[in-house]
Write a protein that binds this DNA or RNA. Structure first.
Lengths: 241, 241
DNA sequence: CGGCTACTTGATAAATCTCAATTGTTGTGG
DNA sequence: CCACAACAATTGAGATTTATCAAGTAGCCG
């Protein structure tokens, strides 16, 4: 995106952060240059491929991350293998559960993902010292709670057709948060199986509903992943709003 | 209820709060006597009947509440009347969404409910001044998010039989948070229709699944509302855990 | 081009919903 | 205390939606 501008007045902002697309968004937006410097001493950036587990059993418990780009899926699994995706996270969301062991939620990269990670103890210390940081976290958590509850309505009360339309609408709005136009186009960040696991359906049902939307010209699909929506209002109607 | 007891050592704790069953739980646990005093100057207690709307269009936007006793259901409704209950709240939960207009969630007393309410602006000012209060809110919000995600798994992936068992288990554990015994008995806080709206089912399906659990001696029901569970492990098995 | 995987499509089965009738519970007035 | 009305819950039969199982097709990568 933006190339970092030289800024003498901010020469103490860490280089890594100057180049970060999320510098002013997400939790880092709450930090001063000094604080960023402290944090960046312990931060590491990495890019991961789709399918990489970011929180689970492996490398998670000791670190928190900011999502810089890409989509992360949060999911839960039952003993017999049934799976439910309980949330999608986009940049600049914060990844990781402060003050608590993860509650059986695992996080996995859905697309190529870039994250900036910090050790758990550094973050927790800073949270204790900086009310503003905790405030940002509360805001994000409240947003996630709203989204979770919206999705509960989708899972519990919508038909398969409405669910699939709701999913497409969700991706439309999150891919371009301030899109005002009536049409959009995007790549689906996940497979039919993942979509089914997010909607509480089977892959086949998802596929059939996509076909129906396609036949009704509500959407166009090329190469299975690329979707264009000529009229968001019509999609929204199909989603039950 | 209780008549406030005189307590010389806490003579500066407001009488109202001394008598409050939730004094040391929930968000008030974060407050000192001084702070409680300030808050209690503006607080009002009331008891409401089942069905009373606590947050919605009416008396909500300007106040927050602590639940002192009873069960509150949070729900969402679609334009055509389909309804989904997206959460249940028990004492000493905090009721109301700080820093934000309610996101289409309405709160209604499921049982007889007692609440202690505060004006919005007083709470928001205190939150700004007291990091500890915000921390408590973050903790509660994280807990609610965990519960919402657990329920998403139930809504999306469990069978009707597992859903009904999950509901009974949820009530069992929340009615007696630190029950260690293997059996419990309680009154259901809501009707079959409400249970169906919580589980994303119809009333008839809920009824049939309760009958099945009853015939299998996993539960006993008297007068439609009173349930006893002789063996929580068996119920838990039925819930898919 | 060939092989692998993801996706689509079709036929059938299973779960859940809908509609309708019946039973049970609670509260009221005599 | 009983009879009755009003409401809540159960039960049954049939319709509908979605899942399951089984091919078949398309896109992707060597």
């Amino acid at each position: 995106m933006d190339i970092p501008r030289k800024d003498v007045h901010n020469s103490d902002t860490p280089l890594l952060c100057q180049a970060c697309e999320s510098r002013h968004r997400g939790v880092c937006g709450a930090l001063t240059s000094d604080q960023l410097l402290r944090l960046s001493k312990h931060s590491t950036r990495r890019s991961v491929e789709p399918g990489t587990e970011l929180v689970g059993e492996s490398l998670q418990a000791k670190s928190y991350s900011n999502i810089i780009s890409g989509v992360v899926k949060l999911s839960k699994m039952m003993a017999d293998g049934r799976q439910q995706i309980v949330g999608l996270q986009f940049a600049p969301d914060f990844l990781g559960r402060p003050f608590r062991a993860e509650n059986g939620v695992s996080a996995e990269a859905a697309t190529d993902v870039k994250v900036c990670s910090f050790p758990r103890n550094v973050i927790e210390r800073m949270i204790g010292e900086m009310p503003e940081l905790e405030h940002k976290l509360l805001e994000q958590t409240l947003t996630e709670l709203d989204e979770a509850r919206d999705w509960m309505l989708t899972l519990g009360r919508k038909t398969a057709a409405e669910k699939v339309a709701s999913f497409l609408l969700l991706i439309s709005t999150h891919a371009f948060p301030d899109n005002e136009a009536e049409s959009v186009a995007f790549d689906l960040p996940m497979s039919r199986v993942d979509i089914a696991d997010f909607l509480g359906l089977t892959m086949e049902t998802v596929s059939r509903q996509l076909t129906k939307l396609r036949k009704d010209n509500v959407i166009h699909i090329v190469n299975n992943r690329h979707v264009s929506v000529p009229d968001l209002t019509r999609l929204s109607d199909r989603a039950g709003y």
